[in-house]
Structures are given as structure tokens and as C-alpha cells.
Amino acid sequence: MDNSIKKYPNKEEKNVQGRQPLLSGAVVHGGLVYVAGKGARGERDIRKATTQVLDSIEEELKNAGSSMERALKVTVFMDDLKEFSAMNEAYRGRFGDEPPVRSTVATYGGIPGDSIIEIDCIAALD
């Protein structure tokens, strides 16, 4: 059994000497990669924000040796459910013809980092 854990640093948090990071960008263990919840700071257009967040997820997945097509489980946290359809427009197709399972909720004012959407992901390694 491979018990090793590999952690990819979060590139979005400023590196301050002598301070521990809050979170990793992605963590790999047992053939799975866990991608941190990604946001889009300051972007007020939900389609653009969704695309930007999914681009961040894709980058983490590739960096860790996986891909959008190998994503298994996604959680979407939205600021406002009114934008559900617009979010779906930008989301559809990004994970290929056989997308991962997904859970979506809105958390009204509950997403940190001035983002209107946050998405995390679990995927299988190649």
C-alpha cells in the first residue's frame, strides 16, 4: 500500500518567511488528488468567474498528473443561487462528456477572498 502523501503548495497565498501556509493547492494520496477550493478574486461576472476558477482547477489537476476528464467529485459553492444557470453555462463541458458528480449550494456572503464562486475537486491520477 502506497502511503506517501505529496502536497503541492498553494500559489495564490503570498509566501511570508517564517509563516506556515494555510492550505495546499493540491494533495495527492492513494491515486487520488484533492484540489483546494478555488475562487476568483474580484470577478463579478459569474461566467467569467466560473471559467477562471475552472482554469485554476485544471491547472492544479494537470500539475498533479491528472486531468479534467479524470475528475470524480466536485463541490460548487456559489454566492447567490440566482446565478445557477449562468454558472452551469460556463461549467458544462469543461469536464468532458462524462463529468464528475457534483454538489452545488449557495452560501450567501460565505465565500472568502472576494469571490462569488468557489469550487473544489477530487480526481484520479493518470
Binding site: G30, L32, K73, V74, R92, G93, D97, P99, V101
Partner: peptide, 15 residues
């Protein structure tokens, strides 16, 4: 293209 699957299976896990 569908937005999501009903479940995904990998390496002994079901999501």
C-alpha cells in the same frame, strides 16, 4: 454534455 454524473467509481470508492 451532461453537467454531472450520478456516481463515479474509482479504486474501490464510489462518489
Amino acid at each position: 454534455q451532461p453537467l454531472f454524473s450520478g456516481s463515479t467509481v474509482h479504486d474501490g470508492f464510489v462518489f
